[in-house]
Write a protein that binds this DNA or RNA. Structure first.
Lengths: 335, 335
DNA sequence: TTGAAAGCGCTAACAC
DNA sequence: GTGTTAGCGCTTTCAA
């Protein structure tokens, strides 16, 4: 029915007013007589008028949109933060444009390009690879508001992120306090330049007076529970055999727990397990998981506040801010 | 550094060519001398030129974007399909713009409005409430390509969705075959007009010659595992007491299983449980869950194919297509 | 091979 | 109170 796209002009012609008047009314100007406003609003409604944001943004030089680049849309942790961010941005009058990199640098570059060409007013990004951030630095250098949701020290970029070092420190310290002296870390992020969880773990060992040999590393080569399952098998084959596992995500931890169960190992008597993220699954898996918890909303609030201040303040002073959110430990039955 | 937004004009002025020539080169026209092309491409690169899609789409009358309205971004099932859709659309040269309704009608309306005003070329939507779809029908009637990802019979709208009736039928039939004669359904979607899982369940009972009293219903009043937990308590208090549970989502099933475990009920000896969706958690929860499985990719492929054909064919013949994807049963230890 | 001019739908500055 | 004009950054005729 009717033309697919209704324009201001269509409403203008139908009412006999000019495009300008219609535009004014539709944006809620109160300086026009009620009769005019009524007439125009009714006609716009009747024609199902929807404003064209493309044209609007082109003029206003602002889309009121923020781009959000996720590594993995299936990761419940990331999704949860994404949801918070969406809500907090909405409160501030901004929309979100999502893009996912799937942990591929090429996709990340494509996503950034796409967001920029869509003229989003700013970008939030979970970077894929911390060793390869020059393209992000370039964007920042050109004065484009961009903020990292993962800590990359010394990159000269704004950051709002979970303090992974502290989280790992808490997790490993907890295991050590429980008497464990041989702990395996399940984490494969080091190749991507993300060694925060290692650093925190080794710092915890050192603080407790343990040798660094107390910690061994197994790379699960993936993020799913299935990878945690396979990694646990490898961990159990290590010499010396670990008495505890610190998994860098709950998903890995749950997979590891599953391997233990299938191999008749008792948790935590034979192996203790600590995860990271406090997902819903951690609470409801076979042995409720001790894990590192943090408030997504905290990340969101700070990230949104910062990006909006970058967008709305013209003085790009060039100083960067690093905000780290402190995680905490949730003790359940697995440790 | 330089100006925040580089335009064609900037590249044109720097090279001495006209805006037109630069535009031509940047779009890969081969009819220009290599020397000119080279010069212009180099300069565009140097200035970090990013095309302005807003202006481009305004002229082309197409954004090459499809809007996707999700009910709940935290639901792994929906996210999985969303991811497939994103990939399949990308293959066809389209981007996705996400929006979430959080199962609120007002949000859904706002999201649809926003997507339309962003000029997406078409919309895919998981509707919030099947009793309230007039706003969606209006959009469809105006000739805007829109497709439902959930089956709403007789709405006169295009649909690509999982066949929930069949899924429920398979699940309940399976329980009946196991000898169960008193089954409780955990599902609260009926108020939203989604009675497919009831219909399938009752059909299965009927087909097996059981009275409809064999099936009882408990509304979990939510979607999380925590709601399944509480609902199971209610289910266990029913008279006659059920020997089996059919939960409309895995999350509810996992919560229910947790209640059983905490109350020393053995699964499946004391209560059998069947879920729906085959999420990762279903496989790794305390008692691996029998559940209804389906291929997200199937939904995605059909949905993308259909929406693109609607977008690219001008003849809006008005005929609607309903495509239902057949689910299947995955038997694990909970039944 | 290249440029000038018009216009996509909208807003803003300035008339009347 | 309302209309006219210009212009956002781009593509697309049509000339030169």
């Amino acid at each position: 029915m009717g033309r697919i796209r209704v324009r201001l002009k269509d409403v203008a012609e139908a009412t006999g007013y000019s495009v300008n008047t219609v535009s004014l009314v539709l944006r809620g100007s109160s300086r026009l007589p009620l009769k005019t406003r009524d007439l125009i609003l009714k006609e716009a409604e009747r024609q199902n008028y929807v404003p064209n944001q493309l044209a609007r943004s082109l003029i206003l030089q602002s889309t009121k949109m923020v781009g959000l680049v996720l590594t993995d849309i299936m990761n419940p942790t990331i999704t949860k933060t994404a949801r918070s961010i969406e809500l907090d941005l909405a409160k501030a009058g901004y929309g979100v444009m999502f893009a996912s990199s799937d942990n591929e640098l090429a996709n990340e570059k494509r996503a950034l390009n796409h967001l920029q060409s869509s003229q989003v007013d700013g970008i939030l990004i979970y970077p894929t690879n911390r060793n390869e951030i020059s393209h992000i630095q370039n964007i920042a250098k050109s004065g484009y508001p961009i903020l990292m949701l993962s800590d990359i020290p010394d990159a000269g970029l704004d950051v709002v992120a979970i303090d992974d070092i502290k989280g790992a420190h808490i997790a490993v310290s907890h295991l050590i306090e429980q008497g464990h002296k041989q702990i395996t870390i399940l984490d494969g992020a080091k190749d991507l330049g993300n060694s925060d969880k290692y650093d925190g773990s080794f710092a915890a060992a050192e603080d407790a007076g343990l040798p660094s040999s107390a910690l061994q590393i197994v790379d699960p080569e993936g993020h799913g529970a299935i990878h945690g399952f396979a990694a646990m098998q490898k961990a159990w084959a290590l010499t010396p055999r670990p008495t505890a596992i610190f998994a860098s995500t709950d998903s890995l931890a749950i997979g590891a727990a599953r391997w233990c169960r299938e191999n008749d190992l008792r948790i935590p008597q034979d192996v203790a397990i600590v995860g990271f993220d406090n997902t819903e699954a951690a609470e409801f898996c076979s042995t409720p998981l001790t894990t590192i918890n943090y408030d997504s909303e905290d990340v969101s609030i700070h990230a949104v506040e910062r990006i909006i201040s970058c967008i709305e303040s013209d003085n790009m002073s060039g100083d960067t801010t690093i905000t780290l959110i402190e995680p905490n430990l949730v003790i359940r039955e697995s440790s």
